[in-house]
Structure formats: structure tokens, C-alpha cells
Simulated assay, not measured.
Amino acid sequence: MRSSLVLLAISAALSSASILPRAAPAPNLPASSFTKFQELSQSDAEAGKDLPPGGFNTTSSRFGASSGAAQTAASAACSAAPNIRIEWRSYSTSDRQAFIGAIKCLMGKPPSGQFPPATSRYEDFVRLHQMWMPNIHGNPKFLIWHRYYLWTFQMVLRDECGFNRALPWWDETLDAGRFAQSDMFTSNDYFGRLAGGGPSCVTNGAFAGLTCNIGPGTSTTTPHCLSRNVDESLTSQCNSGFVNTCNSRGDYASMESCSEGGPHAYGHNGIGAVMSDVSASPSDPVFWMHHSFIDHNFRIWQNQDPARTTTINGNDHFGNPLTMDTIVTVAGIRPDVKISDIMNTMSGVMIGGHPFCYKYSY
């Protein structure tokens, strides 16, 4: 009799559990919900149509003597043991899994409370990006700010989720026009597939079913699914010819303008949906891979002339000239720095207990 009652109780419990309401999936927003990045065609870039009349200011700020000496010593120490960012194709399976796992670790951690309404430590980064629009887009501060933003993300992965591997970067020129065929998206272990024909929620890969709580846009916070809407006619513009067009420009601000409106904008818009949301695109974890490509192109441009790691020109969003003393901030996630600290990826300057010290595998 007693065993019969126990079985009845278990049966009742299972029956009740089967009809408990489940959390509804986050809505799939239409393409019109996402404000796309402004694109610059390669032909317009070649014609210089993005440049202001008379060009950008050409007064470049250079290190002072004492600052230069300190930078040289730190850079020498960095050169002895630099961090090397590894292109995805050469990144081991173990490293790939560790990277994806570290991102998911941040997504599982509570927010710092400094970036409401972020719901996780990962969304602290998304909200930071949303908050700082348009200060960090549409002006020459774009490249240098995103360089520090990407490095900060790497350091938080390291310090808070134990990610002690090299950071991957993605050579998009090798996948231009066929992003969806990369194993970054075809393998169920990584970022989830790229689908076209209208935004669709990501339902496979490590981030299947992810809800984005920041965005879309700058003023709204509407939970929505991580969605993509690939357009390979746009991803085809992330080609080496376009990169070379941008990198043929002789001053920082002119090169930045081409890079931001060219391969950068086409990569975001080509992946589409959440990645095309100018303010909250970091909600899609592939954001970090795309920006590793953009930072790589910036570094290659700098490699053409050593002076390009010690000078800068152009004005910020407010019309203030950028100098090597201009402050770059990530709102306390890591310390504020001067552009002089991060203009050279091999500067070796200590920031938050870590040297700013890396280069790319090629």
C-alpha cells in the first residue's frame, strides 16, 4: 500500500512538472530593428569620396622625449616574449574550445552592476559599447578605441574565466564572399550557422538560443534572440584588395575612415541582424573575431612605417584633435589609458597588471 502511494505521488509530480510553463524564446526581430553600419564602396574609397574637403588635419602628435624613452624600454621587454594572436585556421581544437568556453563563462557570470541593465558580465561589454555610441564610431577614434576594447575583453577572459591561451584572429580576406562556409559557422562546436533570407535565430553551435538583452539601437532594451542574416555580396567586400586600398592611405585618419566604412562595415552588415546593430553588435560573439581582423589590418598599416606607432591625427566626435595624450576609456573595466600607451601593440606598457604586448601570426 505504501509503495503504491509513493508511485502515485511520483506520477502526480511528473504530471504537474510536464505542464509547468516554460520560458518563451526571445523574439526574432525584423531586419528593420537593426541600424546598419554606413558602407563605403571600394570605388568611392579609391576616389577619396569619404574624405573631408582639404583632408583630415595633418598635425600629428608625437611622443615627447621622456615618454619615448620609457616606451622604448617597455617595448624592448615586450619584444622578448610577445603574445601572438593566432589566425583561426591555425588555432588548435583545444584552443578553440577554450576560447568559446571562456566567452560562455562570462555569459554565465553576474554583471558588475556598473552597466545596467546588463544581465551578465558579458553584457557589461555590450552595454559599454552601446553607451559610448557615437563617440567610438564615425570618427578617427574608432580604430584606437576598439583596439583597447578588444584587448580589455581578452584580459577579462583571462582574469575572470582563466583563459590563458593566445587570442584568435580571423583573416576574413580568405573567406570573403563565403563566410557561411567557414568552420567557425558550420561546426556545431563554435559560433553557430549563418543563415540568409531574413533574420533567423541561431539554433545551433555554442550560442544556440542566446537571448540578447541590450539593444537594438541606442535607446531601447528589448530582449531578442541572437539572430543573423548573411549576405555574401556584402561579405565579399572584406577582400584583400579593399584592405590594401585602405592601407595605401598615408595618414591615420584617412586610413581609419576607409577601414571603418569599408571592410569593417561590410563584415558587420554581411553577417547581418544583431551583428549589423551599430550600437549593440557585441551581443553576437562573432563580433570579437571580426574586430580582430580590423585590428590586424590596422597593425599591418602601422608596420609599413615605424612613425605610425608614434603619431596620430584627426578629430574625435566632438571635434577635438586626437593626440598621443588623448584618453581612451572603457569605463572602469580596465584603467583609462593614453593613446600613446596603445598605439603600438608592442608597447609593453603595464595596464591593470598586464603588459600591452601582442602581435599577429602574419
Rank of each mutant, 00 (worst) to 15 (best):
V243D: 08
T323L: 04
I327K: 05
S32T: 15
R158W: 09
R147T: 04
S41P: 07
N135W: 05
I84W: 09
I294R: 07
G108F: 11
A9E: 03
S32Y: 05
K141S: 14
G215H: 02
D189V: 12
G332H: 08
M350A: 06
N139M: 07
R127E: 06
W301I: 10
G352M: 01
I84M: 12
C105D: 03
S67Q: 14
F163Y: 07
N313C: 09
G352L: 07
G352K: 06
Y148A: 10
P25T: 08
F179D: 01
N229C: 10
K141M: 15
Q154P: 11
K141Q: 15
K49A: 13
F99Y: 08
F63M: 15
A118E: 01
G48T: 14
S233C: 12
S92F: 09
T59V: 15
K36N: 05
I103V: 14
E123M: 02
A166F: 01
A47M: 08
S233V: 11
T119M: 02
M155T: 12
M350D: 07
P110K: 10
H290T: 14
S182Q: 09
A280V: 01
S18A: 15
C105A: 08
D284R: 03
C238S: 12
S219P: 00
S248H: 02
G113A: 10
G101C: 07
V202K: 02
P282A: 05
K338F: 01
A13F: 11
A65P: 12
Y149Q: 06
G270L: 03
A65H: 05
K359I: 12
P285Y: 05
D336W: 02
N188Y: 09
L106E: 04
Y360V: 13
C201W: 00
N28E: 05
S79G: 11
A206G: 04
A24D: 08
N247P: 03
S92W: 09
P52K: 14
V337C: 00
D50S: 15
